[in-house]
């Protein structure tokens, strides 16, 4: 895909879900250079989400190798890998707790103890940057709208300063206005902070900002 040294690479990767006979991904190879914005496209069931899950070791390939920064991901400690290659799920998953507790969640985990937990000032600034100016840190996170939850999850992932952001249909459940806001944020993270984006989307309009595309096959 590029002439530069790849940050993320799939090398002849195949994957079949347990209990299924047909592989969802077969002999898939591609490379993503640092700083790229890659759009993953394909019909339902073509393995788009699976591709993201393989990149952060939520699934293990049956064959082939997934590499991050030249190293096979299965040779890296999973916690450290997921801090650098951050996966944001399609459905925002939040604790039944305040916005503050959700944003600080990662900093209470063992693998992130070397990181300083962001103070309220930094969190407030983050909320403003992610177009969440109107919500308070004490507000229950689960009471936010879907669009706000999605942006909150993005912000939570970004607080760990990942090198790669894996986004699984981040605009799927959003209205046009909210979808546009999320895409603006993602574009900004890529352009201004140099975060490599790998984004799955059904909507061709979402892929307009992409600098590269991975197309997956038909229904299996």
């Amino acid at each position: 895909m590029t002439g530069e040294a790849p940050l993320l690479a799939f090398d002849a990767v195949s994957f079949t879900y347990p209990g299924k006979t047909a592989p969802v991904l077969e002999d898939l190879s591609f490379e993503v250079a640092a700083g790229r914005f890659v759009s993953v496209e394909g019909p339902s069931g073509s393995g788009k989400s699976t591709l993201l899950r393989l990149a952060c070791r939520l699934e293990a390939p049956d064959a082939g190798v997934v590499r991050f920064a030249g190293q096979p991901v299965d040779a890296m400690p999973p916690g450290l890998l997921r801090r650098r290659v951050s996966y944001v799920q399609q459905t925002p998953a939040l604790l039944a707790d305040s916005v503050r507790a959700n944003l600080r969640l990662a900093f209470g985990l063992r693998v992130n103890r070397d990181l300083e937990a962001p103070g309220d000032g930094r969190l407030r600034q983050g909320l403003d940057e992610f177009l969440l100016e109107k919500i308070s840190l004490d507000q229950p996170a689960r009471e936010l709208s879907v669009g706000q939850k999605q942006r909150l999850c993005l912000l939570r992932a970004m607080l760990l300063a990942p090198e790669v952001l894996l986004l699984d249909e981040p605009t799927a459940a959003l209205d046009r206005d909210n979808a546009r806001r999320v895409l603006e944020i993602v574009k900004g993270l890529n352009r201004h902070q140099g975060v490599t984006i790998v984004m799955v989307s059904h909507n061709p309009a979402d892929a307009r900002n992409a600098t590269a595309r991975v197309r997956l096959g038909g229904d299996r």
């Binding site: 997921r82 801090r83 998953a93 985990l109 693998v111």
Partner: peptide
Amino acid sequence: RDLVEMHLCLGADARE
């Protein structure tokens, strides 16, 4: 599962 994987994605181990 979503909540468990959300924790994993932030760096949690299986126990956490």
